[in-house]
């Protein structure tokens, strides 16, 4: 069976498991929304300033809480399940791809919910071509999903993996955050967003290449 077909089966199953777990819907989303409320309370910033930084805060919440999406409990496998996958898959890269696609889908959904919340409560000045932020968000979701999946493989079975994974994932997602942030700034200035899009595509390509190439290597526990 081809790598892509197996990856698709893994992605579908991962999404089904998350649907039953409800971790994103009932825990991560409310947590992210809560963070959006806590920041204004803690900083006591004027409304105008909050409006100015609204989109930026949204990206930060997506970055930090998006980590919980990619590193969610429902995506974790027991050592026995990991052994089973190693014996079942014709190409271990299918696991990386499948989990990345599932995480990207969930992250995209997370952004779809958080975006309107951020707009509703912070009333940011949206760029005229605000709809161009949608492909930016999609690429960000894909980049973060791949980064998070790779980090998940790196920390599997290690001590302190619960704390170590977000530290690694958040840092490595920095270039993606830069791309999204620059795209927002350029759109606000009515400039072309080709450069930040290219940056995000580069992150996706490099992370995909490293993730797939290292799949076999990272199998060993």
């Amino acid at each position: 069976m081809s790598l892509w077909k197996q990856a698709w089966i893994i992605a579908k199953t991962d999404l089904r498991v998350e649907g039953r777990s409800g971790e994103i819907l009932w825990i991560v989303l409310p947590y992210g929304a809560l963070a959006l409320f806590l920041i204004p309370i803690a900083t006591a910033l004027p409304l105008k300033t909050l409006s100015d930084i609204g989109i930026g805060m949204y990206w930060v919440v997506v970055l930090l809480f998006g980590m919980f999406v990619t590193l969610r409990q429902s995506s974790q496998s027991s050592p026995q399940e990991r052994d089973l996958m190693r014996l079942t898959l014709s190409d271990p890269a299918a696991l990386f791809l499948g989990k990345s696609v599932a995480s990207a889908t969930l992250l995209g959904s997370f952004q779809l919910v958080m975006g309107p919340i951020a707009v509703a409560f912070f009333n940011p000045a949206l760029p005229a071509q605000w709809w161009l932020l949608i492909p930016v968000s999609a690429l960000l979701a894909l980049a973060m999903a791949m980064t998070g999946t790779l980090v998940g493989f790196l920390v599997a079975g290690t001590r302190s993996s619960n704390a170590l994974a977000p530290l690694l994932a958040a840092g490595l997602a920095f270039p993606s955050l830069v791309g999204a942030s620059i795209a927002t700034t350029k759109l606000s200035d009515s400039q072309s967003i080709v450069t930040p899009i290219a940056l995000l595509l580069l992150v996706v390509a490099i992370t995909a290449a490293i993730g797939m190439a290292s799949s076999t290597l990272l199998e060993d526990q």
Binding site: M1, Q6, I9, I10, T13, R16, V17, R20, S21, S74, S77, S78, Q80, E81, D83, L84, T88, L89
Partner: peptide, 22 residues
């Protein structure tokens, strides 16, 4: 120890592997 995904049914656990193996 059984290598099962707890949130899938017993049938779905088998179907998952069956799908991967065609």
């Amino acid at each position: 120890r059984a290598a099962l995904n707890d949130l899938l049914t017993l049938r779905e656990n088998l179907e998952f592997i069956a799908a991967l193996r065609a």
